[in-house]
Design a binder for these strands. Sequence first.
RNA 1: GCCGACAUAGCUCAAUUGGCAGAGCAGCUGACUUGUAAUCAGCAGGUUGCGGGUUCGAGUCCCAUUGUCGGCUCCA
Length: 637
Amino acid sequence: MSDKIIISLKDGSQREYPIATTGYQIAEDISRRLAKDAIAVKLDDKVVDLHLPLSKGGQMEILTFDSEEGQEIFRHSSSHILAQAVQNLFPGTKLGIGPAIQSGFYYDFDLEHKFTPEDLEKIEKEMERIVKEDISYERKEMDRQEAIEFFKCRGEEYKVELIQDLPEDTVISLYNQGEFIDLCAGPHVPSTGSIKAVKLTSIAGAYWRGSENNKMLQRIYGISFPKKQALEDYLFKLEEAKKRDHRKLGAQLELYSIMDEGPGFPFFFPKGMILRNQLENFWREEHNKAGYQEIKTPIILNQSLWETSGHWEHYRNNMYVTEIDDQDFAVKPMNCPGGMLVYGSKMHSYRDLPVRMGELGLVHRHELSGALHGLMRVRCFTQDDAHIFMLPSQIKDEIVGVIELVDKFYKLFGFSYHVELSTKPEKAMGSDEIWDKATEALREALEQKGMDYIVNEGDGAFYGPKIDFHLRDCLDRTWQCGTIQLDFLMPDKFNLSYIGEDGQKHRPVMIHRVVFGSIERFIGILTEHYAGAFPAWLAPVQVKVLPITDRHVEYAEKVLQKLKAANVRAEIDKRNEKIGYKIREGQMQKIPYLLVVGDKEAEADMVAVRKRGEGDLGSKGLDSFIEAISIEISEKK
RNA sequence: GCCGACAUAGCUCAAUUGGCAGAGCAGCUGACUUGUAAUCAGCAGGUUGCGGGUUCGAGUCCCAUUGUCGGCUCCA
């Protein structure tokens, strides 16, 4: 074996180093400047710690904070500093885990003292002190027993548990900066000095290992950057993002609100209803085109139905129940059983399949109080549900059809989304064979559409596996919206059938699917996506007419009537205010078009058009304005 | 449900160690008749989330409760 390693660089050049040279030394040799920013190196696309002596050469790339992997390592190193600071200030604190997350890092702690916001400031100061000391991160390896003993002696029971659960062949590594030492797979930045800006953002409770049966630890969240300015930019962006919060905008724009009188039960105001009705109209048009029929099923149905569907057994804790004439009833948490009854109410021929039955159905679910979140997580919501009953041979095509429909909807709004495939949960009905078959069908449809997806093992519904479509809110939290769930069980339970070519009864296969998911949630996401500036076809008020003085009101009314006659949602601001004041208000209400009318316009049947985001466009003929906005609305631009 | 923080006028926020609840915006009234992001003046607006307690005195301190926010768990 050679005692040299050969490193080739991106530009094609090659260099030779003695074996066991560390990544850091090589990075430093390649470029002094780069070495300062270097966080780790990638050797043949595998991330390697800068501290590790290399045993083989290969294609090398130096990772900095600019890369996603670099950021993750950087944040993870920050979490170690957080842990060190906390242990310095609160001796005896036991450590949980401290990973990097998408927007920073956290560390879980177990201690008697309850962290306060003032503590965060102190901890931040201590972190800054550690950063200033510029202590090197060092790596050492231990065998399993040695490591267990080591952490036992230090009273780190959670670390001991983690080690015991590591697979047998894992190399157990520890990292330390100065006195502080932690179980860690690495890699890390060269030294604490790299972390130039740190901000602890919040304290929260979190169950050890994510299980509510375990002790609740205290979690501190933070964010860090290699430059002070980057932190300031981040905080500024965060403030800007918060202005898009649908809860804030919903109230400001008088769209919807959740009141203390009905926690989790949203109110829709007149303007919010316009938005909602536009979405529903669009939904009906598209589903009609795609061969769906619409039904409506009752909100309250008797207990035996829920026993048949399995909801009573699996979902009862989340259902609202009531008693009518000494009989138990439940408010529907899902629309499916109603849909099953409608399908079962008549005979179906194989020639009629697939039957696609849609329902904008209002469902109620008793969600935990702590889970509620604006319109995103509520206790009553409208699902744009549909159940498709089909022949086994039609499964893939139908799933593909739904995927295409979802994509068409989300593209219209300009959403980017990600897809997840969820498989059989522990608490599930039906055999493994059925589940495998159903899961395979979903997988095939995704592959056929060439879609990337994440697999969530054990995350399916109790009656079948599912494909979920996830959208992001203003703070990058993702919310499940669309979903496609394959269900081999419900048709069985409801004894549904169709008459096949052979004249015999057969069991249809069914999918549940939603596109918006919850109309309420979708409106929440839409509000944040557009920051309240809805495109004209959705905007509650599309045009506001602003007469300059009292004597222009008459003409303004005429303009208003003409707009209304052309089905444009228009309002007039007749108040005795200056034009600048009316414009300011119209802009803040995010109305797509403001029409200023004064003497010039009244004389020639004109309107001065001010477009949201573009400002004053000058005067235009009223008729040509109406024509243009009508096209914009009908084309949903 | 769990952990923590918060709750003052319609909205955004003040109120010193416990000592007379206040401002801007919005609303109403009046004047001004206005040309592209706030005209001026006046008026009105409150059981400080709700319920207890400590105190001569509570928006402020303590207890309980409801709701909200940030997480955890759960979930569309």
